[in-house]
């Protein structure tokens, strides 16, 4: 049964990783915990639902549409709520992020009501047997989609000009701007990519659990943030590792009978890791500068 839990955990972990990537990229450049990121994920899931129910589209079109909408939303969010506060204290930006998060949750509740909305079946699910392990078609699609998106992200960050600029800005913000990198463009781009990945995560979760709701982003966002910190915030491989680690640990924890403590598993892991490795699994150690 252990192998089965690994498969289930990987599926959940892939989604955590997709959300965690947005947190980690934004934090890497502007040291902001974008608390409204969970709401972007939620809105992505809702866009997916609407694409299927209202426009009758399939999985592929729906997920692309959700990613596009959330890209625009993420860029707007940064423009309105964070850019004016870039020179202010971290807490001021954080409160603005919390305000934006409350706003987006309530906007969605006003529009769709607070009740969960069913995600219509877009994929004819099937079960495959590999040895003793059962894998559903939906799980395979989640894993494959996540892997493709992460590969694309990796390509952008390593080989495309704007991606290289992102890495430069996260290494040294000031020097990057002195080298002629348009920091505002880089930040907008980072929000766009991060939001698109979160939206994809939202649609995938909708398909997996067959339901979406306006408050779904709160806990998922928080846990994905834990995953990002766990892996080493600012590190892209760290976010993937943290997300998968968290997803697997949570699934195994539930299977082991700790389901009522489910929400505490992520935080306990986070605390244990940080106490031994204060900057996360793949984070660079902080030098105390005098």
């Amino acid at each position: 049964m252990f192998e089965q839990q690994i498969i289930n955990g990987l599926t959940l972990g892939a989604v955590y990783a997709l959300i965690a990537l947005g947190y980690t990229m934004v934090y890497g450049i502007i040291q902001l915990i974008n608390f409204a990121h969970g709401e972007i994920y939620m809105i992505g899931a809702f866009v997916g639902v609407m694409m299927v129910t209202i426009l009758g589209q399939g999985f592929f079109v729906s997920i692309i549409a959700a990613m596009m909408v959330c890209m625009i939303l993420g860029v707007l969010l940064e423009r309105v709520a964070y850019r004016p506060l870039r020179k202010s204290t971290r807490l001021a930006a954080l409160i603005s992020a919390i305000g934006a998060s409350i706003f987006l949750q309530n906007a969605m509740m006003l529009w769709k009501g607070p009740q969960p909305v069913g995600f219509p079946q877009v994929i004819n699910d099937a079960i495959y047997h590999i040895g003793s392990v059962e894998v559903t078609k939906v799980q395979l699609i989640i894993l494959a989609t996540s892997a493709v998106l992460m590969a694309i992200l990796n390509y952008i960050v390593k080989y495309v000009k704007i991606g290289k600029a992102m890495r430069a800005a996260s290494q040294d913000y000031d020097t990057a701007s002195l080298m002629g990198i348009n920091i505002n463009r880089v930040i907008s781009f980072t929000f766009a990519i991060g939001s698109a990945l979160a939206a994809a995560g939202g649609v995938l979760v909708g398909i997996y659990f067959n339901t979406v709701e306006p408050l779904m982003g709160v806990m998922a966002g928080l846990k994905a943030f834990c995953a990002a910190v766990l892996g080493g915030i600012g590190s892209i491989p760290g976010a993937v590792l943290g997300g998968i680690f968290l997803g697997v640990a949570e699934t195994i924890g539930i299977a082991a009978g700790f389901s009522t403590y489910k929400d505490a598993i992520a935080f306990s892991l986070l605390i244990i890791v940080l106490l031994f490795k204060p900057t996360g699994l793949l984070g660079k150690p902080i030098q105390r500068k005098v």
Binding site: V80, A81, P84, L85, S88, A92, A93, I95, S96, I98, G99, A100, S101, I102, F103, L104, Q105, N106, A107, L110
Partner: peptide, 12 residues
């Protein structure tokens, strides 16, 4: 909704 928007505006 307004409460959330107010928080953003007050910080800005």
């Amino acid at each position: 909704l307004i409460y959330g928007a107010l928080m953003v505006l007050m910080m800005i």
